[in-house]
Design a protein around this nucleic acid. Structure first.
Length: 447
RNA sequence: GGCCCCAUCGUCUAUCGGUUAGGACGAAAGCUUUUCAAGCUUUAAAGCGGGGUUCGACUCCCCGUGGGGUCACCA
């Protein structure tokens, strides 16, 4: 049996987006699973619209995702080859130079057209079954503007043929191009690869996903602090499933389980909530080092410096931060809103904030906090962790009303409406800082 | 409009003729030590319509309807 060769063939006229990633992923998975080769081919026959920056973006994105290619080609490097085949087709009478009456600006008065045999083309799609087209309506379509300027449908066929591509996996917007390509293949006597067309990825309004529907470029997801594992897992599930209830899949698992037969036929709506859920799932799996590093990258400069100056505290807040966000980009926004300030600096807050709804009496609240200080002091420096602190305070809090003790204590430590629980906070801050902050609150209540 | 593709909870999906139509995200409720997050438990939520075929259709066929794609000297 022939070696499996797949390819991902983007045109550098735009950034690598989420839909292309899925196409690349499936092609990659199929090749790897069969010990085959995965080709990356940049289709830049359109000199006007192709941009180096887009090519770089595509390469960059694929590399980040780990979708490495075995061979790399760029169509603009292969002009001689296309020219040769163009000549071959003309010599065989399958193509001809056609005199034209230009109707639009930029149109040539002479192009190369394919001599359409006008038959019915039927091909098998691995996901959909047989698809037939009457090619008569295609007319004698243009395959090149001139010998140096081949067009997409022609260049694709030459490349797939010449590179020995066995399986073409691409978006279903290419279905209607398939009969044209098959016609050229047949004129050349080239073997027909297996085709699998993937359903479109849709925006929430069910229209084609586009820039106005928000972040699209993979590099933007990276900048927002999404993990490559999550992106890959997420796109894999849009249009394919392993045949059971497993939803969390690493690349190597997908590689084992992937099958073309399981690819979906209907379009899939891009569901950002599910991406976030998956991303968070993968964030929780991160090592402390990697998580800490990522968080630091999203901290504004000042906070970053403080975190680096207080490694003991920072290490303890890493899991707390992870727990509260779905992607690292959120860390940046939270940090900028002052969310993490209290871990490093004394908080400031209005004194009313210390009062719990069930007991708004200042004096009583101060007394409760005084008792808290006493109990805090009873916990030794060495065992000043959440568990021991909780044990020391629990009975008292329960007795006089948990909220009326725990709320002011937590507020005294964080100065914020929302934060981790007071025991965790106390552990992170350490005994001295914790006692000081509670005492500050007491002072505030007593004035 | 022609041609092509598609159609199960709001969303991603399982089911390859016989199921109480399952799972996940999201939502709601509750629990978990005060808030938030996380976690756990529970609930609501689906076969586009009409004909066939069959003892029996979400599943097979046909016709509608709806959605999408494509009709370039773009890819």
């Amino acid at each position: 049996m022939r070696q499996v060769i797949t390819r991902f063939a983007p045109s550098p006229t735009g950034v690598l987006h989420i839909g292309s990633v899925r196409t690349a992923l499936y092609s990659w998975l199929y090749a790897k699973q069969h010990n085959g080769k995965f080709i990356l081919r940049i289709e830049d026959t359109d000199k006007e619209r192709s941009k180096k920056e887009f090519e770089d973006n595509i390469l960059d994105g694929l590399k980040w995702l780990g979708l490495t290619h075995d061979v790399f080609y760029r169509q603009s490097d292969r002009a001689d080859l296309y020219k040769k085949y163009l000549e071959t087709l003309i010599a065989k009478g399958s193509a001809y130079i056609s005199k034209e009456e230009p109707t639009e600006e930029g149109e040539r008065s002479e192009v190369i057209r394919f001599k359409n045999p006008n038959g019915v083309v039927t091909f098998r799609d691995e996901a959909r079954g047989d698809i037939s087209f009457d090619t008569t309506e295609l007319k004698d379509f243009v395959i090149a503007k001139d010998f140096e300027t081949p067009l997409y449908n022609f260049a694709v066929v030459i490349d797939d043929f010449q590179m020995g591509v066995t399986h073409i996996i691409r978006g279903d917007d290419a279905i209607s191009n398939t009969p044209r390509q098959i016609l050229i293949q047949e004129a050349l006597g080239a073997p027909r690869p297996m085709y699998t067309h993937l359903p479109m990825i849709l925006a929430p309004d069910k229209t084609k996903l586009s820039k106005r529907h928000g972040a699209l470029a993979v590099t933007e997801y990276r900048e927002e602090g999404y993990l490559p594992e999550a992106i890959l897992n997420f796109v894999a599930l849009m249009g394919w499933n392993p045949g059971n209830d497993q939803e969390v899949l690493f690349l190597d698992e997908m590689q084992k389980l992937f099958t073309l037969e399981k690819v979906q036929k209907g379009g899939a709506v891009f569901n950002i909530d599910k991406l976030k859920w998956l991303n968070k799932h993968y964030m929780k799996l991160l090592s402390k080092e990697r998580a800490g590093e990522s968080i630091l990258n999203f901290f504004p400069g000042v906070l970053r410096t403080k975190a680096e100056d207080n490694p003991v505290i920072f290490e303890k807040i890493v899991p707390i931060i992870i727990d509260h966000v779905s992607h690292f980009g959120e860390v940046r926004a939270l940090a900028e809103s002052g969310e993490y300030g209290y871990f490093f600096d004394e908080p400031t807050y209005p004194l009313e904030a210390l009062l719990w709804k069930d007991d708004t009496d200042r004096t009583r609240t101060a007394e409760k906090l005084q008792k808290v200080v006493v109990l805090l002091q009873s916990v030794s420096e060495e065992s000043f962790d959440a568990e021991h602190i909780k044990a020391a305070l629990w009975d008292f809090a329960t007795e006089v009303g948990r909220g009326s003790v725990l709320w002011p204590m937590r507020y005294a430590l964080s100065g914020r409406e929302k934060s981790p629980d007071p025991f965790t906070l106390a552990e992170i801050l350490g005994k001295e800082v914790t006692v000081n902050r509670v005492n500050e609150a007491i002072k505030l209540l007593m004035v």
